[in-house]
């Protein structure tokens, strides 16, 4: 069962003796439902990674960094987890995120999606969905609403969208919320 897109899974392991980009490794690319599960079944769950590590799933040809030409005008829907949620929620939310991406859950707005990242951090893990153009308000909001619904977050929970250009300058301003 072929997917609409070919996806690349990346792994980042923090090693401060190396440049950031040298810590980022492409694991594998896949473009079928069956290969997705083969990959998923052979890698560590996100909750088992050590702090400082990331997984990223991006469309083939887009590197999981702000600097990539297909990311630099974009931003991310960010889900921040409390420390205690690593064991109760992280793996389920990350899997739901992956299924939204490979299943093209955002309908025609799926073309705006670049990828998703899970950051494993001692102060609290984060999951984000990256889109390519922060100014495409209709697409960004559609993706945010659908994503929140798929994660099963309560209507009271609020997730924010931050433009990479703002994040790069250390501003944590939410451009949109759903």
């Amino acid at each position: 069962h072929s997917l609409e897109n070919r996806w690349a899974l990346w792994f980042f392991k923090n090693d401060s003796s190396q440049a950031w980009q040298d810590n980022l490794h492409l694991i594998i690319k896949f473009d079928t439902v069956e290969d997705f599960w083969a990959v998923y079944g052979h890698i560590q769950l996100a909750s088992k990674l050590s702090s400082g590590c990331d997984y990223a799933l991006f469309k083939d040809g887009i590197r999981p960094m702000w600097e990539d030409s297909r990311n630099k005008r974009g931003g991310r829907w960010l889900v921040s987890l409390a420390k205690h949620q690593r064991h109760s929620k992280l793996d389920r939310l990350w899997l739901e995120t992956l299924l939204c991406l490979i299943g093209e859950s955002f309908e025609e707005h799926s073309q705006e999606v670049c990828g998703a990242v899970v950051n494993i951090r001692t102060k609290g893990d984060k999951i984000s969905v990256w889109t390519r153009e922060a100014e495409n308000q209709a697409s960004v909001l559609h993706i945010g609403h659908v994503y929140k619904q798929h994660l099963g977050l309560s209507t009271k929970a609020i997730i924010g969208y931050q433009a990479h250009a703002d994040t790069a300058t250390k501003s944590t301003r939410n451009k949109f919320v759903v």
Binding site: H1, E4, E34, G41, E96
Partner: peptide
């Protein structure tokens, strides 16, 4: 058309042995 798959469809493949 676009290949869209809902989560239930995708999850059905999770533990399916690979066909060779």
């Amino acid at each position: 058309g676009k290949k869209q798959y809902d989560r239930e469809f995708l999850l059905d493949f999770q533990f399916m042995p690979a066909c060779i």
